[in-house]
């Protein structure tokens, strides 16, 4: 009995509870002149809206607001540099909850998939550089007595090494991860964009859900006052995850063929066995099993036992990862 309870607790703990989205939308009626207003509900998390409304302009806008675990509540504070006559006006008209409803309507199994890991770039300089700089310093000491500028030559070489080798590891880190989650259907799919400290989201790819790790991280959001601007999210020392529904999705994946993308690498799980299938072009049949690398651990972990799984990576500088669970 105790063992069964422990197992149940473990299973409940492993399943990620849906967290409150950090992004909400507030409807405002604005009357100019208003210039570069800021919007704040949670202390430290602020939305900066670039642009201005001229005197006499009267518009209604739905504006993004960063919220905390309590979700959208109360009235956000909208501030701007007042004009001489203090004639600008802003009226809060309530929260827009259509996105929450759309997100809740998606299958729970899709929404609760494990998040892709993102890490800060490791900018620690290599130890070899420390030894090289130490050597250059000793050379400078040795040559300093030989002339007024004797120490300068090793120092100049060390400066060049420092500039080119310092922080080189940062370029190896993936700036962003994109994962497309499917459930064996053509639709719906969920697109997850994960980034360390920064995410830039196009106006036509606005998220239905935004999460951060740590959950309470302060998020600075920047967009335009005019509709159609991209969202730039920045959170120091935090990972950001933006999710949106893709309806229709990128396509459907079956053994007979897939119409999602040209995959550079595919891993297939059928009857509990993983196999590497190599590249898989759009429209072609699933290639046969071959020797190759194991599926990426972060992509295969946390999946339910039983159903058929397809993990795939598309081509590109920022590759898109596909994770599709079939019947």
């Amino acid at each position: 009995m105790r063992l069964a309870l422990a197992g149940l607790a473990l299973a409940l703990g492993a399943a990620r509870a849906p967290a409150q989205s950090r992004l909400a939308w507030a409807r405002y009626e604005l009357e100019g002149p208003i210039s570069r207003p800021t919007l704040e509900l949670v202390s430290g998390s602020r939305t900066l809206l670039e642009g201005e409304l001229l005197a006499g302009e009267h518009v209604e806008r739905v504006l993004p607001v960063v919220v905390d675990a309590l979700g959208p509540h109360g009235e956000p504070r909208l501030e701007w540099e007042p004009d001489a006559e203090h004639s600008g006006r802003a009226h809060f008209r309530g929260w827009v909850r259509e996105g929450e409803a759309r997100w809740s309507a998606l299958p729970l199994g899709l929404r609760a998939r494990p998040r892709p890991p993102v890490f800060p770039a490791d900018t620690t300089p290599p130890l070899a550089l420390l030894l090289l700089l130490g050597g250059a310093a000793l050379a400078s000491v040795a040559l300093a007595r030989r002339g007024r500028f004797g120490a300068a030559l090793p120092a100049a070489a060390a400066c060049a090494l420092s500039w080119f080798l310092g922080g080189a590891g940062a370029e190896l880190a993936a700036p962003e991860r994109i994962v497309l989650e499917g459930a064996g259907q053509a639709s719906p799919w969920i697109e997850v964009r994960a980034g360390w400290e920064t995410l830039v989201l196009a106006a036509d790819a606005l998220p239905l859900e935004l999460e951060s790790e740590p959950e309470a991280a302060a998020i600075a959001l920047r967009t335009t006052l005019a509709p159609g601007g991209e969202l730039t999210l920045r959170a120091n020392g935090a990972a950001l995850y933006a999710r949106r529904a893709l309806e229709p999705g990128p396509g459907r994946i079956r053994e007979e063929g897939q119409d999602c993308a040209d995959f550079a690498a595919v891993w297939w799980r059928a009857e509990g066995e993983w196999s590497f299938r190599g590249p898989w072009l759009r429209g072609a049949e699933l290639p046969g099993a071959r020797a190759g690398e194991a599926p990426p651990g972060w992509l295969e972990s946390g999946l339910p036992q039983g159903p058929r799984v397809c993990l795939a990576r598309s081509e590109g500088t920022i590759p898109r990862w596909f994770r599709d669970l079939g019947p």
Partner: peptide
């Protein structure tokens, strides 16, 4: 001569 390479490395970081 000793400080300059470390200053450049700090800028690179």
């Amino acid at each position: 001569a000793l400080a300059a390479p470390l200053a450049v490395l700090a800028l690179a970081l």
